[in-house]
Each structure stands twice: as C-alpha cells, then as structure tokens.
C-alpha cells in the first residue's frame, strides 16, 4: 500500500490551487508534466484499486484491450489543443481532467500487464508516431493554436514532443538491436 499512499500524496499536491495554476501557466509543463503526473498518480493508486476489486477487472477486462482502448481515447482527447485551452477556462473540463487522467493511470496499470508483447508494442509504436506528429504540428503551426498560450510556448511544447519521440525511438532501437540476456528479451 506504499504506492497508493504515494499516489494519493502526489494527487493532493497536484490539486493544490497555486501548484495547479503555476503548472498550467506554462504550456509545456501543463501538457508534458502535469498530465503525466496525474496519470502516474492514478497508476500508483491503481495498486489499491486493483487489490480492492480484482475480480471486476478480471471479468470485464481479462485481456486488457477494453482498458487500453479507453486509455487511447482519453489521452487522444487531451492532446487536442482545445481540450487544454478549455481546461483553463471551463471548470467542468478542468474537473474532468483531474478525474479522467488518474483513471487512465489505473486502467493502464491493469491493462498493460495483461496485454501481450504484440499488443504492447502496437500501442507503443502508435504513441511514438502520434507524439512525432504532435511535435511537428506544434512547431510548424503558422498560427497560434491555443488562445491561452503564446506561440513561442507552443513551439517549446512541440520541441518537448520531439524530444520524447526521440527518446522513444532510441528505446525501441536499443530493445530491438542490442540484445541482452535471453530472459529480458522476452519482455520487449
């Protein structure tokens, strides 16, 4: 239960208004730090959730596919420039953010271990190309896409995505081309 406590602590810190406001004031931090931290909080809390209702997850999401589909949809939604804008101006979108992203973490924790290697690789590769596209999109966009952020911030976010994509590519390459011992090869 150590993870759960940590998760709750993280979540509480994230919803403290000054911290929230600060994080949201910088576009890069908003999308690439606050979002992932919220997901991480969910993942940690997932420890308790999965223990509390193990059978529900087993029954309804035995192979992890339903969970991962929801994860993909929710994260895709949060990648729209509009969702980010609206979370600043409309309170119920902000509320939805603080509920849906931790939910992503919980679902991800359950689904990820149930997915086969093929499923995991598929999801991973899709995020890789999606992040690459987002990077290009935010850097190259000739207009300001978000009303609440300056263009320069938008480009910084774009570069953030490019860096993440780069790291993901390096990860894939080292997994596929630098073989370790047989045992860890099995878990791409």
């Amino acid at each position: 239960m150590k993870q759960t406590k940590l998760g709750i602590l993280l979540y509480v810190i994230l919803i403290i208004p000054p911290i929230t406001t600060y994080m949201e004031s910088i576009m890069l931090v908003h999308m690439l730090i606050q979002f992932p931290l919220l997901i991480l909080a969910g993942w940690l809390i997932g420890e308790w959730v999965l223990e509390r209702w193990p059978y529900h997850f087993l029954k309804w999401d035995a192979n992890g596919i339903a969970g991962i589909i929801l994860v993909i949809f929710i994260t895709t939604y949060w990648m729209f420039p509009r969702a980010m804008d609206e979370s600043l101006t409309i309170w119920h979108i902000e509320l939805f953010k603080f509920i849906s992203l931790p939910l992503v973490g919980i679902l991800l924790r359950n689904s990820w271990r149930k997915l086969t290697i093929i499923g995991r690789s598929f999801v991973f590769l899709n995020y890789l190309s999606m992040f690459g596209l987002m990077g290009w999109f935010y850097i190259d966009s000739p207009v300001q896409i978000c009303n609440n952020y300056l263009e320069i911030e938008q480009q910084m976010l774009g570069w953030g995505f490019v860096v993440i994509t780069g790291i993901m590519i390096v990860y894939v390459l080292q997994k596929c081309f630098i073989s370790g011992t047989k045992s860890n090869v099995n878990q791409i």
Binding site: I117, I118, S121, F122, L125, C176, F177, I178, S179, K182, V185, N186, I188
Partner: peptide, 21 residues
Amino acid sequence: FLLLFIDSGRAIIKKYGSLGK
C-alpha cells in the same frame, strides 16, 4: 500488417536475441 510485423519481430528477437542478430 503492423501487428504481423510486430509479431515477426518479436519471434525473431526471441529466437536470435535481437534484430541485429
């Protein structure tokens, strides 16, 4: 097709150690 090639990659890595090999 993507699924198919992920599978072939997985199988090759499992048997030979890496795509390089």
